[in-house]
Design a protein around this nucleic acid. Structure first.
Lengths: 237, 237
DNA sequence: CACGCTATGTACGCTAGCGCCCCGACGCTT
DNA sequence: AAGCGTCGGGGCGCTAGCGTACATAGCGTG
């Protein structure tokens, strides 16, 4: 029963499910290791599996063409990958890239769909999760349009830290540029500014968050609003 | 029975429903007139009614603060307002503004939720609609970030024309600036360019689309991709 | 321990779009 | 017919961010 307790807390979408639904979940899932840089889903590809990250996390990237791409949302322990199956669609328009290595629960699409019918509480919780993601997408449209690179970088680091669960992040400026849809040089300037202000420290692909409250201050309000929304709609129980 | 045929074709989400579900729908809905400029929903407001536009359409606007706001999606005869009720959430983070006057079917939230349980085909179709909206939001994040005002304006005019169903649109530069989240002067320059190229003509708040294929050419590919997605996921029959 | 790769710093000219302002023109109202 | 409010055109200096390029500095490997 200890393992169930663990399951319930391993991923926040699964947290607090009644034991009946937890049993059903455990019966069909497997545990997999996600490797950094792995592409779990190409745009328009069929979704064969859903993932519930435990300590890994995944970037979901909207790609207009080879040059223009931007991360639109993340899936870590607070979320899942393959959510559109809940809507009855087995494809995703986004590129899913493992951004933080670690473990995740994996289910094949068929089992997942069957599971939803057996687990109304999970089903409802996942619908709420879809709502949260939609709100975050809508906010991101505005955020990416209006806010400066530095504020967006701060926001992004905070979101990543929440999902990685540690202060040390494995990220190059190049990678960050890809995520925010800006130049690498643009990231460098913003990073210098954040470092000068004592909020972060970095060196050859390792970024350390030194002052989280300060970073929240430097980030646009979108970070706090996203957090507040999630907490309100998907309380951990 | 003629009226039922009309219902089935009045709003594309309702099109093609089995007659049983159409009956259930007609039993609970009312027809309302939407007035230009009317605010149907403030951000965070409780959703008391859902709307299925017939020849009206609604702008859904993400508002960061009083200055920074941008339209993120539209709801016309191809969609609906209040979709988050399908996910079990009776609030919307977006501002809903009537942009094209006309008629719409309206249901109160409670009846709508009850209706979903009685109409599995409608329910499934609305879930598919949610998927389409999510994809469009994700694309808009990238589009608004990477594409020039002129291309985005062209896209926006096309989307509006589709929903208005006529060549003549009632729009000032000021309003367009609000929708695209840019300066009025920025719209003026883009509009001049489109007019010079013979794609549109405008005069004191009336814009006429002269060359639709040319306008599609001038728009970013996002327009075509959105259309293609909708057609694929929500075929009209 | 030297080499080479990768990550970061920096520079330069350029463009889109900003904020702000003023003007003229149209058209509705009185 | 006059007046006024609304709409569009245009100008000004400014900034963020772009594309490109090159230089330095760690680090791992041979």
């Amino acid at each position: 029963m200890t393992s169930m307790f663990h399951v319930a807390n391993a991923n926040q979408l699964l947290a607090g499910l009644p034991s009946f639904e937890q049993d059903a979940f455990i019966a069909v899932c497997e545990t997999v290791e996600l490797v950094f840089g792995e592409v779990l889903l190409q745009p328009t590809e069929t979704i064969n599996h859903v993932y519930f990250p435990i300590d890994s996390f995944i970037s979901l990237i909207s790609k207009l063409d080879s040059d223009d791409q931007i991360e639109v949302t993340m899936a870590g322990r607070e979320g899942m990958l393959g959510i559109s199956l809940v809507l009855g669609i087995d494809e995703s328009p986004l590129l899913a890239l493992v951004q933080g290595a670690g473990t995740a629960f994996r289910l094949n699409a068929v089992s997942f769909q069957a599971l939803l019918l057996k687990c109304p509480v999970l089903h409802q919780r996942l619908k709420h999760y879809i709502y949260v993601v939609m709100c975050q997408l809508a906010r991101s449209v505005a955020c990416n349009h209006f806010h400066r690179i530095e504020a967006r970088l701060a926001r992004w680091l905070l979101m990543t830290q929440d999902r990685a669960g540690c202060d040390q992040l494995h990220l190059t400026h190049e990678f960050l540029a890809m995520m925010l849809g800006v130049r690498r040089a643009g990231i460098t300037l913003a990073a210098i500014s954040l470092q000068t202000r004592g909020l972060i420290r970095y060196q050859r692909g390792e970024i350390t968050v030194l002052d989280r409250p300060g970073l929240i201050e430097a980030a646009c309000g979108c970070y706090n609003q996203d957090c507040a929304l999630y907490a309100r709609i998907l309380p951990v129980a």
